[in-house]
Design a protein around this nucleic acid. Sequence first.
DNA 1: CTCTTGATCTTCT
DNA 2: GAAGATCAAGAGC
Length: 203
Amino acid sequence: MVQKPRSTSPAIGKPLKCSFFSRNVLEVAPDLIGATLLVNGVGGVIVEVEAYHHTEPAAHSYRGPTPRNMVMFGPAGFTYIYRSYGIHWCMNFVCEKEGSAAAVLIRALQPTHGIPAMRRRRGLHDERSLCSGPGKLCEALGISIAHNALPLDAPPIALYRRTEAIDVVTGVRIGITKAAALPWRYGLKGSKFVSKPFRTADS
DNA sequence: CTCTTGATCTTCT
DNA sequence: GAAGATCAAGAGC
């Protein structure tokens, strides 16, 4: 059950440490739901993510390192930014350990901090559309390739643990054709800020 | 509401 | 040359 999409600022927990990401990517991904992501003080609550791992063919790291995906093969706790369809930027958090080439794609935020700045960057959009997709949230937060390979526990990035118990829903990942059946998409149950609805029994 | 299309970077065939 | 971890705008229902 979700409140009105006004500027309700949920409580913010303690900063996440880099060790948070040194676990199996399928554990980290659902744990990120409800956390707060800020870049230069602008951002919101993570409501949708997807997990990727080099052992499955949908991952950029599946075919080994390239200039683009090199940071995925490095240690956990860093950003991996890539260009999508030649136009957009998308943001990942690298997980597990060096060589795992595992990462969590951040797909949607509920905006809570710096909403006027997000509107300026995105143009005239209702709050629900500001960060409801991986390319949208990067535009709203001013993220580009300049933010690639940055540590997740130091400026300009800030990540805060969630404070309340939440319900996480799962589904198949969006926009892929390989390994399309893996249920590696995670979302905040009932959130109106996700990129596409989660289709589960109760919705 | 759904469907189609253009934008044009990185990698692979 | 083609596909892809996307998005917005326009056409049609």
